[in-house]
């Protein structure tokens, strides 16, 4: 049987970590293919509910990453985010959700190597933990299409 390949979702801010991951690319550093990035303007935009959704939609691990304190493009979004994460982590831990599946990091636009290292590290850890089957999953994708309305304009 093939080794289990975890699915890791990364919520990143546009200005530091997304740019840092761009630098990883321009520097041609290699890392695991398991990560899928969700680009947001700022870590302040990252709703804790999105993290729950990621698990509900089949993520085995989560990375949340943004600008180092003091570097926020919006001056304070990451500070607000940090407070939310503190409480959210405590709550997850209290509820028996394994924090080894949720990783928080600051990766600046200059830390391409750190990004590669972070992804590899998280993927390895989550691979060792195995699939997150314990976490209840959403219904199949088709019915969700209906739940999540589509609006189109021109």
């Amino acid at each position: 049987m093939a080794e289990f390949e975890p699915k890791v979702v990364a919520f990143v801010c546009n200005w530091c970590t997304y740019a840092g991951a761009d630098l990883t690319g321009t520097s041609r550093m290699k890392y695991a293919t398991n990560v899928r990035m969700i680009r947001l303007p700022c870590t302040g935009r990252i709703d804790f509910m999105l993290l729950l959704q990621a698990f509900g939609h089949g993520a085995d691990g989560i990375i949340v990453s943004g600008c180092h304190p003091g570097d926020c493009h919006y001056s304070a979004g990451n500070f607000h985010a940090r407070r939310r994460w503190m409480l959210f982590r405590e709550l997850l831990d209290f509820a028996g959700i394994d924090l080894r599946r949720v990783h928080f990091s600051w990766v600046s636009a200059a830390e391409g190597a750190k990004w590669a290292e972070l992804v590899n590290d998280v993927v390895n850890q989550v691979r060792a933990l195995g699939p997150y089957d314990e976490f209840p999953k959403r219904l199949n994708r088709q019915s969700l299409e209906q739940l999540c309305s589509v609006e189109v304009g021109r």
Partner: peptide, 27 residues
């Protein structure tokens, strides 16, 4: 319901999400 953050049925996922969200909203 746009999007439907918390599943409607009272299954394990919906119950967990509801109670976690409620706790966070009251923090």
């Amino acid at each position: 319901n746009q999007p439907q953050w918390v599943p409607v049925p009272s299954d394990m996922l919906g119950n967990l999400e509801w109670n976690v969200i409620r706790a966070m909203h009251l923090a």
